[in-house]
Nucleic acid binder design. Structure first.
Lengths: 344, 344
DNA sequence: CTATTCTATGCAACCGGTTGCATGTCAAGC
DNA sequence: GCTTGACATGCAACCGGTTGCATAGAATAG
């Protein structure tokens, strides 16, 4: 009466051994260390395996070797366009190294993030945490139990790859100053986001250095809708330009401005972060570049470094960013700024 | 001299057994069937486990039970906005059922798809293949070996969830006809895509029924760039409206039309498919709806049905679509059509 | 008070591979 | 021609759990 649903007729090493007339260990070696066997035997075993449709069982192998050829990647929101390129890169890399990738989605919820890490434990070689929303103590606790790499989260002692938007944001502020803007707004992202803190600080520092007035408008979620909703609040500051936490928020803001009859870039300038929308907005969005694919690749690389030498070093892998000027920034309205177009 | 990188100090069932002064099997039962033991023993074992920081090993359990509490999802392109909501839904569902999710990305390459299915085999309870580009024979071969569910691929005998864009596309053609358009273009997607064939056929059938001229312009990849590139070719047909394989292609087409000075919807009408861009294009895209989240949920549900009752039935789960009219469709230029705005 | 049924636990085999060691074989070395 | 060694393969233990069956002790029945 018991149901045996998933036990399909997958041949095991024993069946291949029987078919080839050798010991199970020989079959195993034919796959893992063929050089150890006579090429004739290898041929015979491989032929038998092929004929039976044998595929080595990952699980059994992991159990006996203790090496789980799996990696887990945990992200806050698959649907946020920042992540798909990263996910894609991580998948490509792990795949190249013959590993399988587990994907976890936390919906921006730290508790869920915690649960996922534990769930994956025991079947992965290591974990990559992208844009973790977990408190530092918990990250450390997890890192103590298993190889762990962070993306866009700066915890000393834990290998991490950081996309340093600081430089790009600085350029962005300078660009706005040069266009004659005297007041700018930063539209913030999730409070627990490292990138958000980094960007906010960069805006503040650069604005102060250049003598610009600066404001922060909070935006709870990095989404189009949320960005659209904060437009009135942004305008109320009296600033003439905004730098948003990410492109999606910036895109929403543009829509919100359009709703209020404010033209971009004539009346107001907008800059995003992450460059994930490419030039697909109308007008094309000026933004801070961001090689998230590169970040994914680097994260996998770091993780495998850890697996190979257990001497856990303190690695901090920083990726540069810069400003990509497109069409959403222009001279400050009214002001005499912007070296061109001086109204007669 | 051997490196033991990933073997962290995780206690095993044996150590807990020793600490609690019982047999390994008793420890196992304390976790899996506590009712079978005296509550006193359970307490003692659990206490010992707690003290040692014992966590059951997923891999070992899977090996001995034959139940892998993992599911694999394979998609052609994580970065295509059609997939993230689907991925997210699948992840959420598997998670709810206490399963882990493997993610595979094939880059639209059938060979890669094939390799991935095999790689995941042996550590998953089942596989979900979304928008498979594999020939039917190979899909059948894989389905014969393990529980398999298809999304947007119609192979009889294999449980599948289909997003029936037929109805929505028909509505789209009717909508264009009503607006006075006499010639329409279908911009096709990947040749091996079931959705593409379905949409192309729906356009043809509906156009013939309504007496519209129809053309097909091939577009190798469903991407913004590719869509943009085919604009001249689309215009050359002399049609006044286009239905694109997906929103991304449609969005690209809009850009391509703008490049050529063609205004949407004044000079040309555009309709997408999948409704993944929401209202974020400018003007907002008229499109065919598409609950890809619902598809993800349904796929997981089907897969678990299969796991529970091995009586593999022929399930064909169809999701409806309809036209979402926004701002990229308007009366045919010049023509007397469109019941409003009759030029004097 | 003995025979019988439960109940709680231990024993040992098994899942599907891997791997250290033992063994058998054949060729080269002296 | 016999020893020595290299090479190819088999044997069996092991990875960390699960589970059918056996058994001992307690509870129940007669």
């Amino acid at each position: 009466m018991k149901i045996e649903p998933e036990r399909k007729a997958t041949p095991t090493i024993s069946q291949v051994a029987a078919a080839a007339g050798v010991d199970r260990s020989t079959v195993s070696r034919a796959f893992t260390r063929p050089a150890m066997l006579s090429s004739e035997t290898v041929q015979r075993v491989l032929a038998a395996a092929e004929r039976l449709g044998y595929v080595p069982n990952h699980t059994a192998r992991a159990l006996s070797t203790g090496h789980y050829r799996n990696v887990a990647l945990i992200v806050p929101d698959v649907a946020n366009p920042f992540f798909p390129p990263l996910i894609s890169a991580v998948q490509r890399e792990t795949d190249r190294l013959d590993f399988c990738l587990f994907l976890g989605n936390t919906d921006e919820d730290p508790r869920q993030e915690d649960r996922l890490v534990d769930r994956f434990a025991g079947q992965v070689a290591g974990v990559i945490l992208a844009s973790s929303r977990l408190p530092e103590a918990q990250i450390r606790a997890h890192a103590a139990r298993r190889p762990l790499v962070l993306v866009n989260r700066d915890v000393s002692g834990i290998p991490r790859v950081l996309i340093d938007s600081g430089a790009g944001v600085e350029e962005a502020v300078a660009h706005l100053a040069e266009l004659g803007h005297r007041g700018i707004v930063y539209i913030s992202g999730p409070a627990s986001s490292w990138s958000n803190r980094q960007r906010r600080n960069a805006v503040r520092k650069a604005a102060e250095k250049l003598g610009l007035a600066h404001f922060t408008v909070p935006c709870p979620m990095p989404s189009y809708q949320a960005g659209r909703a904060v437009a009135p609040q942004v305008l109320r500051t009296g600033a003439t330009a905004a730098i948003a936490f990410d492109d999606v928020t910036a895109h929403g803001l543009m829509a919100g401005l359009a709703d209020g009859g404010v033209a971009v870039p004539r009346d107001f300038s907008v800059i995003g972060c992450d460059d994930v929308l490419g030039a697909v907005t109308q007008p094309a969005l000026t933004t801070v570049s961001n090689w998230s694919e590169e970040a994914g690749r680097a994260a996998v690389s770091l993780l495998f470094d850890m697996l190979q030498s257990s001497a856990i070093r303190d690695v901090r892998y920083v990726l540069e960013t810069h400003l990509v000027v497109r069409e959403t920034t222009g001279p400050a309205p009214g002001a005499a700024g912007g070296r061109s177009k001086r109204p007669g």
